[in-house]
Design a protein around this nucleic acid. Structure first.
Length: 571
RNA sequence: GGGCCUGUAGCUCAAUUGGUUAGAGCAGAGCGCUCAUAACGCUUUGGUUGGGGGUUCGAGUCCCUCCGGGCCUACCA
């Protein structure tokens, strides 16, 4: 039994996430967490909402709520949706928690003590009308290069030229439209991560088997141009972790907060502390996951994230942990994902294009989404959601191959025998062959799951389901029943056990259907089938079961067409 | 501009890292079965691996070049 720490990239607080966000981090992390638990490992699966930053403040302002209230509400919404999708977090925390405030300030102090914090005076654009400093992208104006009149302060989207806000002609606030802007000097803290470049480089080199996507992004940032740049880790905002606090090793930072990308990863640790608090445990309970001097030396730590998050997890966060000069647990494996597109374009929150988590659950059960998203996870490339593909995959895989198998076996048994596992008969070479095939494929499935090869795991699982249909076709208990009912009884007894077996191994992908199946088999034996023959003897003759409701209703053409229209944009 | 990823059957993807005749699922065609959600099984059609050139006994895989798609480029998170 191993101890496995799993974190999913934190979903940002400003709204409901779409399916692309879900499949890029939380969902595959959940798959892995469920699998590890099923194998008997001790798992700590952590996620949280990322609540700080300008977008959160603006989103709150839009609703007219105080930002703290807005975040609390949205956290509740996201937590509910996570439950709806069956995301089995041990704790779903908040980066605005007291724990994160304390830890973020702790790390900042440690980094300062190690000489890794530098005060830098910068010039930034201040908007009088908005009463705030504006991040570059929140300043709009005319591009000096191509004349596009909606160029942003960081880059012109029309000609892709990178800009400085002061380059813009007729700059204005993207928030209010105000042109009453002023360049002001403001003091910020920088993390001197450039001094850790070689350390980080060696650390990344020492990792084996990380996805190319992960290492290539990290290497780019380490070696591109002048190499790894120092980063500002504070901002002129109200909502966040205060930079000036009791015991802070600097002065004059009042009214500033730490930048989200400094405090968000620290929330992985803080959320584990929140978990301990929520369970009435003391600090040692979370420290044994995070401190190598307090029991975390045998922990394997795996992170899941979309590719946009890679630089922060390969460089900034490790720099924070290493720079603290305390024995914090570093990540062992970073599983990163490409993007999921929607029907020929990108998901768009602003245009309401694509399917969002709340909408998804309102039209179909979570398992449908989980199965499609995971079996099409964008591991090697960006992938694409189309309704046609969704309908075809879900109907074939879930309804026909798995759902119908459960249906045909249980109904056959009910009509020819009873709602009890039938007794009598013996198993023969055909059954031995099935056990051998199941074992081979199950071992392959386990290997893919352990390697976090999501798509391959899905296709192997599906192949395991297919073995059941192949066996039934060959054994043909409906024929055997006419001449040798005992033979049919033995076959169906095996098939009923196979259904429970499928519930166990499918649970990481489709937990709801697995639970319903297990309930129908009137069992609660979720133990992993280390030995297939033993697993297929779990339900003895005479054991009662029920015929479950249709496990997966098919998606009709009418539904597909309607949804296609409904989600095409303009939410 | 620079960097990275990518292009394989109508569609979605594999191919043990250079090794026999490029494989699966879906869709299509044919046959079988009748327990089942018109479900299942078997067989089968379908490929100049984006184009061109090169290295090699051997290239989907390595190199060059051209074409297409995507991402990143540090103040969105």
């Amino acid at each position: 039994m191993a101890r496995i720490l799993i974190t999913s990239a934190l979903p940002y607080i400003n709204g409901i996430k779409h399916l692309g966000n879900l499949v890029g981090s939380q969902l595959p992390a959940d798959l892995y967490a469920r699998y590890c638990r099923a194998r008997g490992h001790e798992v700590m699966f952590i996620c949280a909402t990322d609540e700080h930053g300008t977008p959160a403040e603006l989103a709150a302002a839009k609703t007219g709520q105080p930002v703290a209230e807005y975040c609390a509400e949205m956290h509740g919404v996201q937590a509910e949706l996570a439950r709806g999708f069956g995301l089995s977090f041990d704790h779903f925390g908040r980066s605005s928690s007291r724990r994160n405030h304390a830890l973020t300030q702790h790390f900042a102090a440690r980094l300062a003590a190690a000489g890794l914090i530098e005060e830098v005076a910068e010039k930034q654009v201040y908007s009088h009308a908005d009463g705030r400093f504006l991040p570059d992208r929140y300043i709009e104006g005319t591009c000096p290069n191509c004349g596009h009149d909606r160029a942003r302060g960081d880059q012109c989207e029309e000609c892709t030229k990178q800009l400085d806000p002061t380059d813009l002609i007729n700059p204005r606030s993207a928030i209010s439209g105000s042109t009453d802007l002023e360049v002001r000097e403001t003091k910020h803290l920088f993390l001197r991560q450039s001094t850790l470049r070689d350390t980080l480089d060696r650390w990344i080199d020492s990792q084996r088997g990380w996805p190319v996507l992960t290492t290539s992004i990290a290497k780019k940032w380490l070696h591109d141009g002048d190499g790894l740049q120092d980063r500002g880790i504070t901002r002129d905002l109200d909502w966040g972790v205060p930079v000036q606090y009791d015991g802070a090793p600097w002065q004059g930072m009042d009214g500033k907060v730490f930048y989200v990308w400094f405090d968000a990863p620290i929330e992985y640790i803080a959320a584990t502390a929140e978990w301990a608090d929520a369970h009435g445990l003391d600090d040692s309970a979370w420290q044994r996951w995070w401190r190598e001097d307090m029991g975390a030396e045998d922990v394997r730590y795996v992170q899941f994230m979309g590719k946009d998050n890679v630089p922060f997890h390969t460089l900034s966060f490790p720099a924070t942990l290493i720079g603290s000069d305390e024995p914090w647990k570093l990540v062992d494996y970073i599983k990163s994902f490409n993007y999921l597109n929607y029907d020929g374009g990108q998901f768009s929150t602003s245009l309401g294009r694509g399917v969002f988590m709340d909408q998804a659950l309102s039209i179909l059960p979570a398992d449908y989404w989980r199965w499609w998203l995971l079996s099409h996870a964008p591991e090697n490339n960006d992938s694409e959601f189309t309704w046609e593909n969704f309908q075809a995959s879900v109907n074939k895989d879930l309804a026909d191959v798995l759902g119908n198998l459960v249906s045909r076996v249980t109904k056959f048994c009910r009509s020819k025998f009873s709602e009890l596992v039938p007794e009598g008969g013996t198993l023969g070479p055909r059954e031995d062959q099935l056990l051998a095939d199941l074992t081979t494929r199950l071992r392959a499935y386990e290997q893919h799951m352990e390697a976090m090869d999501v798509r391959k795991s899905a296709s192997e699982l599906r192949a395991l389901w297919v073995l059941g249909n192949e066996y039934l076709q060959e054994a043909a208990p409906w024929s055997a029943f006419k001449t040798d009912p005992e033979q049919a009884a033995a076959q169906i007894r095996l098939a009923l056990n196979l259904i429970r077996f499928y519930a166990v191994i499918s649970q990481p992908f489709i937990p709801d259907a697995a639970a319903r199946t297990m309930a129908a088999m009137q069992s609660d034996d979720w133990s992993w089938p280390d030995d297939v023959a033993t697993a297929l003897n779990t339900l003895p003759a005479g054991h009662a079961f029920t015929v479950p409701e249709v496990l997966f209703a098919k998606i009709t053409d009418d539904q597909r067409t309607a949804w296609e229209a409904q989600f095409s944009g303009q939410r």
